[in-house]
Design a protein around this nucleic acid. Structure first.
Lengths: 200, 200
DNA sequence: AAAAAAATGGACTTGCAAGTCCAGTATCCG
DNA sequence: CGGATACTGGACTTGCAAGTCCATTTTTTT
């Protein structure tokens, strides 16, 4: 990585990444072209290769990083304070809303799939995202334990993992079928079972 | 659809579909080429376009259909008779085993994603698959109700939907991170919560 | 068995998108 | 102020993969 990036350079680089992200929200990665990115960001070929010498894949990887950060930032306000049942409900609503609005597109998903094993580091992006996400959920469950709302012997990681899987699957189905039922069901069932565990 | 397909023609057509499916298990759809399919199936360009006049997309859609059928066929022996807790456990083990072996690849997923909205019918493949899958799960839950193992007032569809979401998410995470923890957690949690509902 | 229809082989065209090159302009730094 | 270094523009090359075409062989049909 060459660090010789002036302020203007950084700005341009960011403009490219965000422009590329926008393009990828409109069309799939397999049909999105560098010319699309150029058109949207008013840059030239040489700039793209100046900032991303390895070419398209390097750019896409940067976009993936950007998008992954976005996912957590978006829900941080809710995900960061899951210390009451009401907070969990608010978070649930926000997740459903966010993905219902996003609808078809999952730039991150198709991005990682497309980069796949060919690009080292692509997998890391999603691995890291999943770990952080699950960690936040686990923290939330522990907060409920601390508040005495849940028994201490609950297997926190196990429940967090199952919940995360439900979310991912719900979003996947939402994206491939257009129906949000499964996402809602997974969240409600997951939270509901948690509440039932409290009653024991 | 032209029905003028002789026995030999049908055979060749199937050979192409299965060969293409095999290719797609090795490489992503975006890098898989018609020449790959030709090489593997010992066919020529003109044969591909003879059997799939619309070109690559039509072939890919046919492969998607084929793969979707496969998914259900594979687990039918287990999925078809979920009438005891032991049967559920056997099914669970088989799902985990199957996807752990399959590992990285999910031809169907990337296929549908790639065809996306451009190809009408691509979405239908996955919609149908999900509906049938969920239906089988629901049937299994109802079987337990009939056997008196579960209360009659349980919301069957809701639980089936949540379980399906958990599976899909678990598989997704397995594929993008290489870890099967989430798939196992989702299944165990889903079945476990079902059993706990029995105790009430 | 001969005409018709279907199946096959493979060379050729076409189009597009990634990546290269070099020349020109702005910006930084001593 | 002046050299160096970073930034930008756009024409050009290259390679590959989808799709076309027609000649040839095999099978079906009457």
């Amino acid at each position: 990585m060459h660090k010789e990036l002036t302020a203007k350079g950084k700005a341009t680089r960011n403009r490219i990444i965000e422009g590329a992200a926008a393009v990828l929200r409109e069309k799939d990665v397999s049909v999105a072209t560098l010319d699309d990115v150029m058109a949207r960001t008013r840059t030239s070929k040489s700039q793209l290769f100046h900032y991303f010498p390895e070419g398209k894949d390097e750019l896409l990887l940067a976009v993936a990083h950007h998008e992954a950060d976005q996912v957590l930032e978006d829900q941080q306000p809710y995900l960061g304070c899951l210390d009451s049942w009401e907070a969990w409900q608010r978070w649930r609503d926000q997740v459903v809303k966010r993905y219902a609005e996003q609808g078809e597109e999952c730039p991150l998903g198709s991005l990682v799939l497309h980069l796949g094993r060919s690009t080292p580091g692509a997998r890391d992006v999603v691995v890291t995202l999943m770990r952080q996400w699950q960690e936040s959920l686990a923290t939330g469950i522990r907060a409920l334990q601390t508040a005495g709302q849940l028994p201490a012997e609950l297997d926190v990681e196990h429940r967090a993992a199952a919940l995360l899987a439900g979310i991912q699957g719900g979003v996947l189905i939402l994206q491939s079928t257009g129906r949000a039922d499964h996402l809602r069901a997974a969240l409600d069932q997951g939270i509901g079972d948690l509440r039932r565990a409290a009653a024991v």
